[in-house]
């Protein structure tokens, strides 16, 4: 996993609530057996007509907006557990998704992919949408070690929470699997000592 420390970027605003993982990457594109290449079908049915031509009113097709930060309404990533949703966002160049809350499985998948799910309050999210929509060039600074989101042009600054362990993992590029494998002796001891073995 790639390390994440500080990111300077403009943001892409997608002010819809309950964006489910079927919208992020429709099921018909889950047939690959590798992790790469899902970005081209990110938000496929919002982004393209059935014949493959872009829908001009979708934000990813609007040249006014670009960047590595996606701003989205509450309950982002609900629905299917497909990690392909996090892979698609990452593959399309996103490194941060900001919302007022994330679905649990998506949050875990994002963290395991190196994509930061950055949770702010509803009021902060509304402010961020206003800033990003007004001027697509507005720069945002995500500082993970400091746990801050800063907007240099306006002086807005927000603190965000993140689990201390997952923060260290992102900063250092560590996966849970490294840690779990290191704990195998404890796992084997647990297996030997448990009462029920089914």
């Amino acid at each position: 996993m790639e390390k994440f420390q500080t990111l300077y970027s403009a943001a892409v605003p997608l002010p819809l609530e309950n964006i489910d993982t079927d919208q992020i990457i429709p099921a018909r594109f889950l047939k690959a057996t590798t992790r790469e290449g899902f970005g081209e079908n990110l938000f496929r049915d919002w982004r393209y007509h059935a014949d493959g031509t872009p829908k001009p009113d979708f934000v990813l097709n609007d040249a006014s907006y670009a960047g590595q930060i996606l701003l989205a309404g509450k309950n982002f990533g609900c629905g299917s557990s497909r990690e392909h949703a996090a892979w698609a966002l990452y593959d399309a160049g996103f490194r941060v998704v900001i919302s007022s809350y994330f679905a649990d499985i998506f949050r875990g998948n994002a963290l395991n992919t190196g994509l930061l799910p950055l949770q702010v309050t509803e009021a902060e999210l509304a402010r961020l949408f206003a800033l990003a929509e007004k001027d697509g060039d507005t720069q945002f600074v995500v500082n993970l070690p400091e746990q801050t989101l800063h907007v240099p042009a306006t002086g807005d600054s927000f603190h965000f929470d993140i689990d201390a362990y997952k923060k260290e993992c992102l900063i250092n590029g560590y996966d849970d699997i490294d840690y779990l494998v290191s704990q195998k002796p404890a796992i084997e001891t647990y297996e030997q000592n448990r009462t029920w073995t089914w």
């Binding site: 557990s81 699997i177 779990l180 704990q183 796992i187």
Partner: peptide, 18 residues
């Protein structure tokens, strides 16, 4: 409960999740 593919790999490797 449902898990993502990275966690599927973790369970395959250690029969555990964090």
């Amino acid at each position: 409960f449902g898990i993502g593919t990275s966690q599927v790999a973790q369970v395959m490797a250690t029969q555990c999740l964090l």
